[in-house]
């Protein structure tokens, strides 16, 4: 929107979006093709086109394991990045994200309750809807605590610490619970809590997309009020924005997005923090109309890349996803903190 080089800006945006989409597609192909059994791009297209027998092992690997996983990482990353972007706008602060604010930990606690409690008390399996409900409840709980605290304390550092502490309490409760859990369910929970896009079933992928896409679309519809909110509540209000309504919508959308990813893939850190920032810097704008779609695509790309790294870097051993996102994300947080002297 900068007036003089306007055309150049528009071309830049198109160019950057093309790069993001291209990257997303590339990482999807890599995730589907590369692994313990490598499958060529030509084969992938043939399989997708239905020209390969359904009993072929490559078909099974791709359809049962790799495509759901690649799709899940794309949607999960998008959800986390958009949730991070919304929270950063909500708190007018660049270093918040679901994981930092303890929202993921809240989700973990309730997912733990559902997973450990459910199986311990005799349920044979846990329905995905139930998992999601637990994760959502946990996310909202921590979110509400942080928001109530935000009314009292103005310092963002204090607020972050409150979020982190809420997260620790949730983690403590979770670990107490694991002490009583049965071995079988415990292993499942431990795997989950390290974060991974592995083991997604098609029905889980369906649910993930059914929740993530409408939520990101809703967030995109809020782009104009979000832009006004960049000037602060009072200015936004004076320009005719219903700030309360927008804030409620922000809480709801970011909690749902965080919860749905946490329910199925476990707590995944730093994607929600790093991606919005990389997008801001790359696009050189604070305009939500650009940044929400950019963060969604970029989040999918980054999650896909991290998942690819986790699977292949130490192959055949698969690393926990959380380790990869942290290694990439943590230095970025430090960099941002040091660059921003006015926190």
């Amino acid at each position: 929107m900068k007036n003089v080089p306007k055309m150049r800006t528009a071309i830049n945006y198109v160019f950057l979006f093309c790069i993001l989409l291209g990257g997303l597609f590339l990482i999807f192909l890599l995730n589907v093709g590369v692994g313990s059994a490598n499958i060529s791009v030509r084969d992938i297209f043939q399989i997708l086109a239905g020209k390969v027998s359904v009993t072929d092992s490559r078909y099974l690997i791709i359809y049962r394991i790799r495509i759901p996983r690649a799709l899940a990482s794309a949607a999960g990353g998008a959800a986390l990045a958009v949730a991070g972007f919304l929270l950063q706008t909500f708190f007018a602060n660049p270093i918040v994200e679901p994981y930092v604010l303890g929202i993921s930990s809240g989700s973990s606690l309730f997912v733990g309750l559902v997973l450990l409690g459910g199986i311990t008390f005799g349920a044979r399996s846990v329905s995905p809807m139930f998992l999601f409900a637990g994760a959502f409840f946990g996310a909202m709980l921590v979110m509400v605590i942080v928001i109530i605290a935000a009314r009292k304390v103005k310092s963002i550092i204090t607020l972050l610490i409150i979020g982190m502490m809420a997260g620790y309490v949730c983690s403590a409760a979770t670990s107490i619970m694991t002490a009583f859990a049965e071995r079988e369910s415990l292993q499942m929970f431990t795997m989950w809590s390290m974060g991974s896009f592995a083991g997604f079933t098609w029905s889980q992928v369906g649910l993930l997309y059914a929740i993530v896409f409408p939520m990101i679309f809703l967030a995109f519809l809020l782009a104009k009020p979000l832009n006004a909110l960049n000037l602060g509540d009072r200015y936004a209000e004076s320009m005719g924005i219903n700030v309360r309504l927008v804030r409620y919508a922000l809480i709801l959308i970011s909690s749902v997005l965080t919860a749905v990813v946490t329910a199925f893939a476990g707590p995944v850190s730093f994607i929600g923090l790093a991606v919005p920032h990389i997008c801001r810097i790359a696009f050189n704008t604070a305009d939500s109309r650009i940044l929400i779609p950019a963060a969604a695509i970029g989040g999918g790309l980054m999650a896909g890349f991290c998942d690819f790294t986790a699977r292949n870097i130490m192959s055949p051993v698969e690393l926990p996803l959380g380790a990869i996102t942290a290694v990439i994300g943590a230095p970025l947080v430090v960099y941002l903190l040091m660059k921003r002297g006015d926190l």
């Binding site: 929107m1 900068k2 007036n3 007018a92 660049p94 519809l221 782009a223 104009k224 832009n227 006004a228 960049n230 000037l231 602060g232 200015y235 320009m239 005719g240 924005i241 801001r280 810097i281 050189n284 704008t285 604070a286 305009d287 109309r289 006015d342």
Partner: peptide, 25 residues
């Protein structure tokens, strides 16, 4: 004080049109 990043003076002034612009601003 405003805490604005990556926003030009023009974009700040343009925010004043918020009450008049359409759904996507």
């Amino acid at each position: 004080k405003l805490n604005l990043n990556m926003t030009s003076a023009y974009e700040v002034a343009a925010m004043g049109r918020t009450p008049y612009t359409g759904f996507f601003g």
